[in-house]
Each structure stands twice: as C-alpha cells, then as structure tokens.
C-alpha cells in the first residue's frame, strides 16, 4: 500500500514540480535570462489573488485572472526597468532579478503576511480514490493544467507567428533582428510569459497548503533544480527532471521523513552541476554559470 501511495503521490508531485519550473524554463529558453525573481512572482500571484478575493471580495475566478495578468505585466516591467540596462551581463542579470524577487517577498513580510491565515481555495473540492489512495481533485487538476499548458506552449512556439519569432530570437538574435523581430520586445514578452506561468502554477498549487513567504524561496530552488537536472531548452528535459525529482522527493519523504525533501533538490543541483552540467537532456552549459 505504501508503494502505491508513493507511485500516486510521486506522479502528483512531479506534475507540481513541472508546473512550478515551467515559467522559469520557458523564459530562460526564449531569452537566455535566468529570472531569479521567479519565486517572488509566484508568491505575488498567490497573495494578490488572496487580497482580491478576501479583502475586495472579488469572485475567485476574477481574482485569479487579475493575479495572472499582474504577474505577467510585472514580468515585462522587470525586463524593461531592471534587465534592459544590464542585458548580456550574466552576473548582473542574476543579481538584479534575485534582488527583485527578494524585494517582492520581503515586501509581503513587511506588510504582515506572516501568519497562517492565508490560503487560496481550491478550484475543485473533494477527492477520488486511485488504487486505494485518496487523491484530492485539485492535485488531479494540477496534472491536467500541466498537460494543457505544455500542449499550449508547444502550439504557441511552433504554430503562431509570435511564438516562432521568440524561438528565432532565442536561436540567433542578429539574424532575428535582420528580419524585423525586435529583441527587447521578444525578451520582455518571454519574461511576461514566464511570470504568467509562475502565477498559474501558484494559483493551482498554493491551494494545497497555506501561503507563506518561504515558499517563494523554495519555488526558486525547485525551478532551478528541475531546470538544471533536465537541461536547458528542452521540454523533454523539464518533464524528465520533474519526474526524477518528484519521485525522489516522494520516496525520501515516505521512507526517510519529510524533513529530508529539501536536501533532495539541493543535492540534485550540486550533483548535476558537478557530474553533467548540461543536464540530462540539455544542449548548453550556460545555466551552470548562473547558479
């Protein structure tokens, strides 16, 4: 029974990790920017949705949509105001985005979002039994949302003009410029898309527990671990990285205790960078320099 439990929750945890890292990976793949404000944007979406729903009494769906839009706009603004002046200087990009992420998280701490009263309601309540294991609908929904987003992103980057332009810019900036694609516009859009995805992940995953500032820091580490493990510019790598880490964390939690779960993704980052810096499916080693 314990093994079935591990298999079912390993699957759910893997989907959670993939969804958490999707925005970070997308932004890096399309613009080369490692957005270390990812955790800040994730939590910003969670708190914004909570404030809109609980303080302004907006319907949950409206608050969720507004939170995603706000995160996406902030992603574009981060590029415009913070990253544009340091574009191309890798260390400055990392420091600048990390500073923004910390500023967002600590702003919420300063505003008093430190107690245990903040939680988002799930999209769907209730649970279902799978092979004798009770799984709430929200967790199953996360798997569905992950699949829909992955398919949507595949379609967007391959079948739409804007998506194709972003892929072109990611491959060769000067050739993209010579056919009329604007690099700052493309980078701002990739930051906005990544931030929007971070918000969708937050609104899907945060209802599983309470919202706390530390989640923002954990989310950044998880995104880094999944991306480093799976490799850059690789959707297959992202999914594989999420599954390996997801099952590793579930096994560790079940057989060693939940206090060791953090050690798993920290160890994954260190091990992969030491043994295979390009990750399992990655083509480049650039992220190694950014961690």
């Amino acid at each position: 029974m314990e093994l079935v439990n591990v298999l079912v929750f390993g699957l759910v945890n893997s989907a959670v990790l993939a969804l958490t890292a999707m925005g970070f990976s997308l932004t890096f793949g399309l613009s080369g920017v490692a957005n270390f404000a990812h955790g800040g944007l994730y939590l910003l979406a969670g708190y914004t949705s909570w404030i809109l729903a609980n303080r302004l009494n907006l319907p949950f769906a409206v608050s969720a949509v507004l939170a995603v839009i706000l995160a996406a706009l902030l992603g574009a603004l981060i590029y415009r105001l913070v990253l544009m002046p340091v574009r191309g200087i890798v260390l400055s990009e990392v420091i600048a985005t990390f500073a923004v992420g910390v500023a967002i998280l600590e702003l919420f701490r300063w505003m008093g979002f430190v107690t245990y009263e903040f939680n988002l309601r799930p999209f769907v309540k209730g649970s279902v039994e799978i092979a004798g294991v009770a799984v709430d609908y929200q967790r199953i929904l996360i798997i569905g949302i992950g699949l829909v987003l992955a398919a949507g992103l595949w379609y967007f980057t391959r079948r739409t003009r804007i998506g194709l332009a972003l892929r072109g810019m990611a491959q060769d900036e000067y050739t993209a410029l010579s056919v009329g694609i604007e690099s700052d516009w493309a980078a701002a859009l990739s930051l906005a898309l990544g931030a929007g995805l971070a918000a969708v992940a937050a609104l899907s995953i945060l209802p599983l527990g309470i919202i706390s500032i530390n989640i923002g820091y954990d989310v950044l580490l998880i995104a880094l671990a999944v991306t480093v493990l799976g490799g850059l510019e690789s959707t297959t790598g992202l999914v594989a990285g999420a599954f390996i880490l997801g099952y590793a964390m579930t096994f560790t939690s079940t057989y060693l205790g939940p206090q060791w779960m953090e050690a798993v993704y920290m160890a994954a980052i260190v091990l992969v960078l030491a043994v295979k810096p390009s990750g399992l499916f990655g083509k480049s080693k650039e992220l190694e320099e950014r961690v």
């Binding site: 194709l164 072109g168 491959q171 060769d172 000067y174 050739t175 056919v179 694609i181």
Partner: peptide
C-alpha cells in the same frame, strides 16, 4: 548576413516564415 545565417533549430519552412515576420 554573412556565413549563411539560419535559425538552426527551425525547419526550412519555419525559417522562410520567420523571414516574412
């Protein structure tokens, strides 16, 4: 540009479509 600049991970048709962006 010089040295046959193409988008290497895109198909030939995708390259041509990008040209007409």
């Amino acid at each position: 540009r010089e040295r046959h600049p193409v988008f290497k991970d895109c198909s030939v048709e995708e390259n041509l479509r990008l040209g007409g962006y």
